Amino acid sequence: MSAGRRNSFADYKADGQNWITLTAGEYYPDILQEACELYEPVLVMFGQLLRTSESSVRLFIQISEVPSTWMRVQLFRVFRKYVSPELPVEMLRRKKKATEICNQFGVRFRSVQEVQAAYMTRPIPDEALSALLWEYKSRGKKGYDLTERFFSLFRLHFPYLAIRGPERAGKDILMGNVFANYPNPKR
């Protein structure tokens, strides 16, 4: 590499494997028993709500009224798989937006009769769907672990420097709050 030239990604290609952050995962099908135990109540409740819904919109509204946040999020994940895979996950977290979501996306929901028929073809517990839901269980954890490790190593090697930011989950620090006259203060 010549003096004054900035490195590019191509400069690291030959030893790229040394720059990959490896994190351990779980093996399939080893997770199936635990996944089925965790998600069986979710699938049972989804079935109960499905049987009492005259439409897919009504099913969505009933799910949005489930008081337990964890259960509601899991039911919405099942809903996406059976009824509306195009539904943005981010929107599902907003409990109070159920009517708005139904107004925007409800016309494209699969009919409740089709959903009921499809649901009835699957066993309870449904290993396939439980395995899919298991993928969400610790979503983000590896990234949080990596970020926390970075902060620890940074403080260890540079104790005289300050570092700020969410070390695990949390709101990022906006650059406009750190630097005066930052061109895009909302980022």
Rank of each mutant, 00 (worst) to 15 (best):
L38T: 08
Y27W: 12
V44Y: 05
S84F: 12
R51H: 09
Q62S: 11
V57C: 05
L22D: 07
R93E: 06
K96A: 06
T52E: 04
L87T: 11
R72N: 07
F79C: 09
Y28D: 11
F60V: 02
I61L: 12
R77F: 10
Y39L: 10
R93M: 09
L59V: 02
V44D: 05
R80D: 08
F79T: 14
L38G: 02
E86N: 10
E54K: 14
E65Q: 12
G25H: 09
K96Q: 13
Q48R: 11
A24D: 15
V42R: 01
V83D: 09
K96E: 04
S84G: 09
Q48N: 08
S56K: 04
C36E: 13
T23V: 12
P88F: 05
L59P: 01
R93T: 15
L38P: 02
R94W: 11
V57R: 04
R94L: 09
L22F: 11
E90N: 08
I61A: 05
M71A: 09
L43C: 07
P88Y: 12
S84R: 10
W70Y: 10
V73G: 01
P88R: 10
V44T: 14
C36N: 12
L50G: 05
P67T: 01
Y82T: 04
L50A: 05
K95Y: 00
F60H: 01
R77G: 15
E34G: 05
R51A: 09
D30M: 09
E65A: 01
R58D: 11
L92R: 00
S68D: 05
Y27K: 14
Q74K: 10
